[in-house]
Design a protein around this nucleic acid. Structure first.
Lengths: 362, 362
DNA sequence: ACTTGTTGGTTGTGCATACAAGTTAGGCAT
DNA sequence: ATGCCTAACTTGTATGCACAACCAACAAGT
């Protein structure tokens, strides 16, 4: 053995080499403490110290009276590579795709995902964060909860920073927090959608946006930007805002009349996402008379499964979804190796033209 | 202090109490080893042993020359309640709902989810299992990968059993493995779907099923059972089998002619799931001439979002999805408290009648 | 003002020893 | 042959000692 390292350390390395070279394998008993002490001419106490560390690392198990045994092989690669992922919702709409993208990259690199889900509540976000602080995670990817509001869990994020655990925010980061983030340019998305309609000759364009969601605001901003750029006046009556609760009631068949009245004098519609878009298509179909895209052109956002589910294949501005997840995961891996650097990545959405939009008629 | 427990253990408890009662909080230095040794009249070595265990548990940090300090609070509730969840796919179809159901229950009970995803490959399943063996999980919920084939990762499941970590299989368990499982009665599902058509007067019923999936077999079995029960002959030419690879090619517009020919002389169709159902509706719509349900009644399975996405609202046999996840999670919690018992839970699917089916005409 | 050395305190490594407690196998008595 | 006991071996707990490495603060010298 060498001379600089402590003896118990040298013993550890000796034992690990025995295991790695398969001279000792799962279930085998290692020499007794006294035997090792005698063989290397060190005290039993020193042997015990080395062994106890390996027990802590999960390599060995000791049983009083019987001996010390090599564990079942699995813990030999003594790494615990977990990335925490916190999203607002699992299982809805585009979130699964994002998670799948993340998983794809991470699992290829030997990491696994620990999942948390906030349901857009700060309290649950806090729980998730505390949970992850108790685990030995190597990084954290967070989809921000209520990103427009000040975040009460700020100190917990600071704690990750203190521990040198990189944190990456998705879909916008919290104010005043100089953390890394990856997000989609939703202003551009709104702009692209609206511009597409304008270029088809539309001038009376209605818009439906979500009010309690930063993406809704951003898409509306793009909506305005396009109007301004092409010198088209923006009519407030043509913009409809809704929030999460409205989803169940506002867009049902029963209230269909009201909705249809809303965009009656328009030739086209920018629609916050495809869940809403699909409900509108249903309402319009039920009502009869209005044909897409002849009478009404419809642009939506995200390009989820729902975009092509009905007979009307929606023109939409595609959210990168899986690609966003992949980018996020790659970025996280980069952050883990390159210490503490701050990245800001913007992803650009793309217009996908299908047959829910057409040139303005009549 | 007491008398039965080892002294280093008593010291640990003493220190933890100091921390829990906030007499020592994050960042504080604890008394030096010599001081503690003197105060309790034990040897410094014994003190060191107690402290070293607390260091290992993440409660304390020692620095040579400076002293030993209390860590930043969060690890004080020294629990690590994680449940491993392995599914074939994340993000597709009904799986997100199942995961959401699991998360809902577990997070309420202070657990968090560690996610793994096999893409239906044994190799990746193995990776996930080894990963979870390296973590300190309290239970494992597995959606079986290629459940019809013998499983090469059997020994890994055995290892969980050995460590007293309960394992719960979803959607069928591996052969020869006496583990707990929760599953949907897919034979009943196939039976319900077919019976519904028969009761509407249909006698020429086509079927499309997935061959590399145990659910496909089961639903087909129910399909046969209904035919037999009502004394209707089963024609092999009316049953079409496909596997995962076919998804991309077999059910596209290009090959639409062949598909349509296949059920040309039938009045109704039992369709493996709604992904396929929707593609068929697309093909039929593109071809023109065939109207659902007038010329062709269509029953599908699962009741996902896709069932009501198009203008044809599909009659379907509903998979419990989220409810299955909730049940699975509850069962897991039960298994954790009640040691090593084996549960078998069967969930019954329900027929949801919409307007893709109607009485036979002509 | 700055460097250097000393001093006393802290944790880190290491040795020798003793007895307690659990496991196993072989020997003895029944 | 069966069952109990003991001896020998294992790890677990505990003490006492010695010196090394490191840290902070203060004092002395430049």
């Amino acid at each position: 053995m060498g001379q600089d390292k402590p003896k118990y350390q040298q013993l550890k390395e000796y034992l690990i080499e025995l295991i790695d070279s398969n001279e000792l394998t799962k279930g085998n008993r290692i020499p007794s403490e006294n035997e090792l002490a005698g063989r290397f001419n060190i005290s039993r106490h020193t042997v015990r110290r080395g062994i106890s560390e390996l027990v802590n690392e999960g390599v060995l198990t000791t049983t009083q009276g019987k001996g010390t045994f090599v564990n079942q092989g699995f813990r030999n690669n003594r790494q615990n590579l977990i990335i925490g992922v916190i999203t607002t919702y699992i299982g809805d709409y585009i979130f699964p795709s994002i998670i799948r993208g993340i998983d794809q990259v991470l699992s290829e690199n030997g990491y696994s995902i620990a999942l948390g889900c906030t349901n857009n509540q700060f309290e649950k976000e806090r729980q998730c964060l505390e949970n992850f602080l108790n685990q030995d995670i190597k990084g954290l990817i967070v989809e921000t909860t209520k990103s427009a509001l000040p975040n009460p869990n700020f100190e917990l994020y600071e704690e990750f920073k203190k521990r040198n655990i990189p944190v990456l925010f998705m879909h916008g980061s919290y104010k005043g927090c100089s953390a890394s983030s990856i997000y989609v340019d939703d202003v551009e998305a709104g702009y692209l959608a609206t511009k597409h309609l304008i270029e088809l000759g539309h001038k009376k364009i209605a818009g439906i946006f979500k009010i309690d969601d930063i993406q809704g605001h951003a898409r509306f901003e793009g909506f305005c930007k396009a109007h301004k750029e092409f010198g088209i006046a923006l009519n407030d009556n043509r913009v409809l805002w809704f929030d999460t609760n409205d989803l169940k009631y506002k867009f049902s068949m029963q209230s269909g009349e009201i909705i249809i009245e809303f965009f009656e004098d328009c030739t086209s519609l920018v629609c916050y996402n495809e869940q809403i878009g699909l409900k509108l298509i249903d309402i319009i179909r039920g009502k009869g008379g209005i044909i897409i895209p002849n009478r009404l052109s419809l642009v939506s956002f995200d390009d989820s499964d729902l975009a092509v589910a009905s007979e009307v294949k929606m023109t939409t501005v595609a959210h990168p979804k899986e690609k966003l997840g992949i980018e996020a995961a790659n970025l996280m891996l980069k952050m883990i190796t390159e210490n503490q650097e701050v990245f800001k990545v913007k992803m650009t959405p793309e217009l996908v033209i299908r047959n829910s939009t057409g040139p303005v008629t009549g």
